[in-house]
């Protein structure tokens, strides 16, 4: 059965798909937002998920969180099917989520304390237990007690995001999905938040799925990195595999569009992408990146590339992975 195979990984998916139906001239069409993604997230690691807008990162995350039902296949957490109703309640409390805009994920009419108490109430905690847990968690993530009586609009963006993180970890989830958690924050607040997340992870032995379009942040945070494009995984591997030895031309282009760290690096070798991501509506032949790839050959637009292993644990979906000179 699936279960035995998935046991090494906390999260396991195979050929996961999410198609959104579109109505076009009465014909049925689909946006293939996530198309055939097989992915494992191991216990205790941070998997960084990167890609441009529309590459399917958030859709994938929502399926893992159980917020969107996959069109095909399913997700296993600790070997158990997320979409099996019998597992629902238990698995829901074993995943937590933090989103980009903290202001919109907190109820403006509830005090911070109320917002934190709510998930505990739902899960049957007594008032006293809830209070103890809230104080304990607030302390862990540097939320002063005086903040608990306030309302979201009285908090700064960084404080709001800390509250969101506190709420996500209250129930001690095994997996925390972080969807652009620091994109709305300033550099100094971002640094603080990232450091706190790293400390929490060690302390609570959590697994992170860290989604961002900021490639420097993902490099700082991740053990492994997964690069998505057009609903598919292009390349996945250890942090250094991706940053130092990437083999997929898309990854190379993505990395070369990151602004330099120093003015000296202005003239470094880079290859920028032109054009747009292809439409994900309808059947797509061949590699999805073919239309923007400077190495594109005949086979690329005819046959979809399989995942190829470039090094141990380092995979890329490119016909010429490892053969290209960037």
């Amino acid at each position: 059965m699936q279960d035995s195979k998935a046991s090494a990984a906390l999260v396991h998916t195979e050929h996961l798909k999410k198609y959104f139906p579109l109505r076009r001239n009465k014909e049925s069409a689909f946006v293939r937002a996530v198309d055939d993604v097989s992915l494992d997230i191991y216990q205790g690691e941070t998997l960084g998920l990167v890609g441009e807008s529309g590459s399917g990162k958030t859709t994938l995350a929502k399926m893992i969180l159980g917020l969107l039902q996959p069109t095909e296949s399913t997700i296993y957490i600790s070997g158990r099917d997320v979409w099996d109703k019998r597992n629902k309640k238990e698995l829901r409390s074993s995943v937590g989520a933090v989103f980009q805009d903290p202001a919109s994920s907190l109820n403006p009419r509830s005090s911070i304390y109320r917002s934190l108490e709510r998930p505990l109430q739902v899960n049957g905690y007594s008032k006293e237990d809830a209070r103890r847990l809230i104080y304990e968690t607030a302390e862990k993530i540097n939320i002063g007690r005086e903040l608990l009586t306030r309302f979201p609009h009285e908090l700064s963006g960084g404080q709001q995001q800390r509250v969101s993180i506190a709420r996500a970890i209250l129930l001690k989830p095994r997996l925390l999905v972080l969807d652009e958690p620091t994109s709305a924050l300033d550099v100094s607040v971002q640094a603080q938040t990232l450091n706190e997340l790293l400390n929490l992870q060690q302390e609570l032995d959590m697994t992170y799925l860290f989604i961002t379009h900021n490639l420097s942040v993902v490099r700082y945070m991740s053990d492994r990195i997964c690069v998505m494009y057009g609903g598919k995984v292009m390349e996945i591997g250890k942090n250094a595999d991706i940053y130092r030895d990437c083999v997929h031309p898309y990854t190379f282009s993505l990395l070369s569009s990151v602004p330099p760290l120093h003015p000296r690096e202005r003239n470094r070798k880079k290859h920028l992408l032109s054009g747009d991501m292809p439409s994900l509506v309808g059947e797509i032949q061949g590699c999805r990146f073919a239309s923007r790839c400077r190495f594109c050959r005949d086979i690329c637009s005819q046959q979809e590339p399989e995942m190829r292993e470039a090094a141990e644990g380092h995979f890329a979906a490119c016909h010429f992975a490892g053969e290209l000179e960037f």
Partner: peptide
């Protein structure tokens, strides 16, 4: 100086980012 050290230019194995205390 602090702001530049708060930029994520390293990996977590290499160290922690500098933060600026207070607001």
């Amino acid at each position: 100086r602090l702001l530049m050290k708060a930029l994520p230019t390293i990996t977590k194995e290499e160290g922690r980012l500098e933060t600026i205390k207070g607001t």
